[in-house]
Amino acid sequence: MSQMNKMEEEVVYLCAVIELLRSMLNYELMAVLGDGDHKSVQFKTMTHRQFFFIALVDFLSQTDAKAPVPSTPYLGALRAISCAPSFEVDDSVIHLKNAVKAFAGWLHEEIAVDTWLPSIDLQVDIRITRYLLLKIVGNLSKHNTLRSVGVAEELQRLLQKVGKKVELYQAMLIQEDIYEKFHDDVCAYHASTIAEFLNGLSWGVQLYLKPEYARSFTPAGDESLAYKFLYPEALEHPYAKTCYWNLMNRVRSGPIFPPFTVTEHLKGNY
């Protein structure tokens, strides 16, 4: 497979990002409730909430090294695109740039989580970035104890930071305690805020690409509903062309949820 140019890589990343975001933000998974700037997200079931955080850990991870574009975190790809956009018209990328900056800043803030670990009879104030906490929750949602030894090692390091040395087997024992606190308490509390950030990214991509969609979209010119998209000249790779077509269709339909702001009552803790 021939190497892609910058525009082609951007299209591939954006197409993948939009599909991931739509897997987390849809009416089958959740409902947005409330009025004005006092909204919240309600998942259909606990299983739907668990899926949300499994998909989120994929979004916070690296793309596959065997993919036709360089391996990078999805959020990192969005940051790079917002700093050097291929389709910008009249500063149309500014909403995406602001959304990426806001979410990345929130993720990398360190929080304190007072945690009771009955498996080893320990009460401890764990200091952890929201990013790492979400990665731990997503991985524990996907894997049982023997497939999450890497998480146990991470928990060892976190406890070591606050002067609590534990053996690896003890770190494996506390995974259920950690999951109960991190997933059922912290993540449940922040789910609405995370959904707001993700929806902001969706709208950031939408507003960034809207001028390109307007340039590219071409109706058939008859009474049918047929249409086509005019590819940019720099877009030649067949995989990137398919991604571009899919991406333009996503811009055509727009994000699933309108922009929303979550109540401040769900933003004060952790």
Score class of each variant (00 low, 15 high):
Gly36Pro: 03
Glu88Gln: 14
Phe51His: 10
Ala188Val: 09
Val262Gly: 02
Pro211Trp: 00
His190Tyr: 11
Gly163Trp: 04
Leu159Asn: 04
Val166Asp: 04
Glu196Ala: 06
Gly36Glu: 05
Ile194Ala: 05
Ile18Tyr: 13
His183Trp: 06
Ser148Gln: 06
Leu122Val: 11
Ala195Trp: 02
Arg215Leu: 12
Thr63Gly: 12
Met4Trp: 00
Tyr189Arg: 07
Phe229Gly: 07
His48Cys: 13
Thr72Cys: 11
Asp185Asn: 07
Ala234Ser: 15
Gly254Trp: 09
His190Ala: 06
Thr63Phe: 07
Glu223Ser: 12
Met4Ser: 01
Ser23Asn: 14
Ile111Gln: 01
Ala31Val: 14
Leu158Lys: 03
Phe229Leu: 07
Lys267Pro: 03
Phe51Leu: 14
Glu19His: 13
Cys187Leu: 04
Thr261Arg: 11
Arg157Asp: 14
Glu167Leu: 12
Pro219His: 10
Pro238Cys: 07
Ser224Glu: 06
Ser2Leu: 12
Lys181Glu: 07
Tyr13Ala: 05
Val186Met: 04
Leu155Ala: 06
Glu8Ala: 08
Gln62Pro: 00
Ala102Met: 08
Leu21Pro: 06
Leu173Phe: 02
Ala104Gln: 14
Leu132Val: 13
Leu75Cys: 05
Ser86Asp: 08
Gly204Leu: 03
Asp125Tyr: 04
Ser224Gln: 07
Gly138Tyr: 00
Lys39Thr: 05
Leu146Met: 12
Gln123Thr: 08
Leu107Thr: 09
His183Ile: 01
Met46Tyr: 08
Gln170Gly: 02
Leu198Val: 01
Glu88Ile: 08
Met248Arg: 02
Thr47Tyr: 12
Phe52Leu: 06
Val17Thr: 10
Leu20Tyr: 14
Arg252Asp: 14
Gln3Glu: 15
Glu264His: 09
Gln50Leu: 14
Gln206Met: 10
Phe53Thr: 01
Ser216His: 09
Asn249Met: 13
Asp177Leu: 04
Gly36Lys: 03
Leu209Phe: 06
His38Ala: 14
Ala84Met: 09
Lys228Asn: 10
Ala240Val: 07
Arg215Trp: 05
Leu14Val: 00
Lys267Ala: 09
Gln175Thr: 03
Ala171Phe: 02
Lys135Tyr: 04
Ala16Ile: 02
Gln206Val: 03
Glu167Ser: 13
Gly268Arg: 13
Ser71Lys: 12
Leu201Trp: 04
Glu28Leu: 09
Tyr189Cys: 05
Gln175Phe: 01
Ile178His: 01
Glu10Ile: 09
Lys241Pro: 02
Val166Arg: 04
Arg250Phe: 13
Gln42Ala: 13
Ala240Trp: 06
Leu230Thr: 15
Ala80Leu: 12
Glu88Arg: 07
Glu10Arg: 05
Arg79Cys: 02
